[in-house]
């Protein structure tokens, strides 16, 4: 009985160990291979044309959720992404796409979104969607956002996820970049991902 129990416990432990491995690469940011589904969405690009996830296949794609009125965290994060991309070799840097998905489509019109993302570089694309499209996408990546109450002048804050999701050329989820992950870690991981795929 006891040796049988031990064998069962050991095999359960081994299963858990195996399940914890992911893609087996020791990333400096957080590896999420096997944890999150491949990139999929239907939204509108800041140029006004409808766009789907498969339009970004072939690129290393970074996806971030924010809004242009965001006081601190969005510009900081986008600047971090810009800095990390600048450290990549020229051809690799041009190959990256950063999708900035607005969680405040009411205030973020296409033009405003275009001006905002263009300020960070040619790789940055603003994306906008209806509430339904946005909910589908945020639910897929198990994140959420919420809009605060407007103040006297109609301004309101929006709470949103601080994570950047990184997808490889075939659209598979590979990395999650958190606030605590620095430019060095991100640049190293992007280069690795660039060389791997």
């Amino acid at each position: 009985m006891t040796s049988k129990c031990r064998r069962i416990l050991i095999s359960i432990g081994l299963c858990l160990l195996l399940a914890a491995c992911g893609d087996g690469i020791d990333w400096q940011t957080k590896g999420i291979a096997g944890l999150m589904p491949p990139l999929r969405f239907t939204l509108t690009e800041d140029s006004g044309s409808p766009v789907q996830a498969k339009d970004f296949h072939g690129h290393i794609t970074l996806m971030y959720f924010g809004y242009t009125h965001c006081p601190d965290i969005c510009p900081t994060t986008l600047a971090k992404l810009k800095a990390a991309i600048a450290r990549l070799p020229e051809s690799a840097a041009q190959d990256v796409r950063v999708l900035f998905v607005t969680v405040d489509p009411k205030r973020d019109g296409l033009e405003r979104l275009r001006t905002y993302t263009a300020a960070f570089g040619p790789q940055f694309v603003g994306l906008r969607g209806s509430d339904v499209e946005l909910t589908q996408l945020t639910k897929r990546y198990r994140i959420t956002y919420g809009r605060g109450k407007p103040d006297a002048s109609g301004n309101y804050e929006v709470s949103h996820s601080s994570a950047v999701f990184v997808f490889d050329r075939s659209g598979e989820a590979r990395l999650m970049v958190r606030d605590s992950d620095g430019v060095d870690a991100l640049a190293a991981d992007l280069e690795r991902l660039e060389n791997k795929t």
Binding site: R142, I143, T144, G146, S159
Partner: peptide
């Protein structure tokens, strides 16, 4: 449990 900060809380 920073996952809730990373993914966003239901309300602030």
């Amino acid at each position: 449990f920073d996952v809730y900060a990373v993914c966003g809380r239901a309300w602030p």
